[in-house]
């Protein structure tokens, strides 16, 4: 069961090999955190912060999501989030940058793809 979710994620481009290595080959620990990923509310917080034009909230949420995703090998998703982290890093006021919505939409697409796989094995 655990190895099936990993091979299906690998098929949609998740770098499961590197991630598993990070967990010292511990498949159970890796899958435990994969299952926690859709339940984590930081991606929703990121959306809410963008909608409310809250630059600090957006930075913190994006930073956290990026860290978790990168650890799990969700590279295509975390690379989009990383762009948002850099947009929000150290800004004095909320940036008027139309890329934010575009990048968010791209990230959301990846997010949904990954979560739909993970939820199948919940």
């Amino acid at each position: 069961m655990n190895s099936e979710i990993i091979s299906e994620l690998a098929a949609i481009g998740v770098d499961t090999e590197t991630a598993l290595n990070r967990f010292m080959g511990n498949i159970n620990l890796y899958t435990k955190f994969l299952h926690k990923f859709p339940a984590d509310d930081n991606f929703a917080k990121l959306k809410a912060s963008i909608d409310n034009k809250d630059k600090d909230g957006a930075f913190m949420a994006a930073h956290t999501v990026k860290g978790v995703a990168a650890n799990l090998g969700l590279d295509s998703f975390s690379k989009e989030i990383e762009k948002l982290v850099e947009i929000f890093r150290g800004v004095q006021s909320y940036p008027e940058n139309e890329d934010i919505d575009v990048i968010y939409a791209m990230a959301e697409e990846k997010y949904n793809e990954i979560c739909s796989v993970i939820r199948k094995y919940a």
Partner: peptide, 12 residues
């Protein structure tokens, strides 16, 4: 602050 990071390091 992230559980996943703490757990990965603990596992190592």
């Amino acid at each position: 602050d992230m559980e996943i990071n703490r757990d990965i390091l603990e596992n190592i």
